[in-house]
Amino acid sequence: MSQSLSTQPARAARSARPTRSTGGSALAHTAFLTARLLRGFWRMPVYLVMNLVQPMIWLLLFGQLFKSVADIPGFSSGSYVNFMTPGIVMMMALFGSAWAGTTYIQDMARGVMDRFLTSPTSRGALMVSTMLFQAVLTIIQTAVVLPIAWLTGATFDGGWSGLVILFAAAVLLTFVFSALSNAVALMAREQTALIGISQLLSFPLMFLSSAIMDTRLSPQWVRDVARFNPFEWAVAAGRGALTASPDWGSVWGHLGLLAGLAVVMGGLATAAFRAYQRSA
């Protein structure tokens, strides 16, 4: 009696095993996995506070420290706060994304990653969910920093459309570097490798750009290198869109480059799952 009771539901559900379609499930998997990351984030609000402290220090400290830079002849913008705000927004996006691979490192240190990879979980969804999660963090940070920039004198001459493009550029930059961070995590499997990205890559990229200093005042070679720097593309798009009369050709061109690179990086990083499994 008890035997038939316990086996009956098992039998019924097994015959009703769902048929799976890979296209639709990749989107659904992305939603489930992104929701999981957001739940975890919501339960550790201390990370949010930590993520916000650093950009505020930069904004308030650099803003004061370099205030008179704007007075140098040849500097493009009249106000240093106006000049620096898009730079600070992109720096937050860059430095935050460098750590995106931490999620994978933690899942690999446990058996969570292996469990996902031995189930029909979409590899693309595993990748895109962490990129989306990181983009949400970037949006929150940006939304907190912009009012502070406004209080310290930023004017946002580009209006709402300029702000929307600033957010878009920050999100695309986040996609590019969180995909890179994930790929490094999958191949190196160690948190220390992520420190490598943030130290060896993020800082040079930041200084080889116009984030805090007008490249027209930098040596020629810095200007040349900056043209190929994805971080500079994001700064240029955001700053361009926030001016009173934007050069839309330049803004959309830089956004397009970022979007293309984000797709390429996402694809390459997803391929890194194969490298992870080869050495598993």
Binding site: R36, D107, G111, V112, R115, T118, S119, P120
Partner: peptide, 18 residues
Amino acid sequence: VRAAIGFVAQKSVCDPMD
């Protein structure tokens, strides 16, 4: 194969923050 198997790794397969 992945649709037909369950996998319990040596280390925990659960997310501690869920």
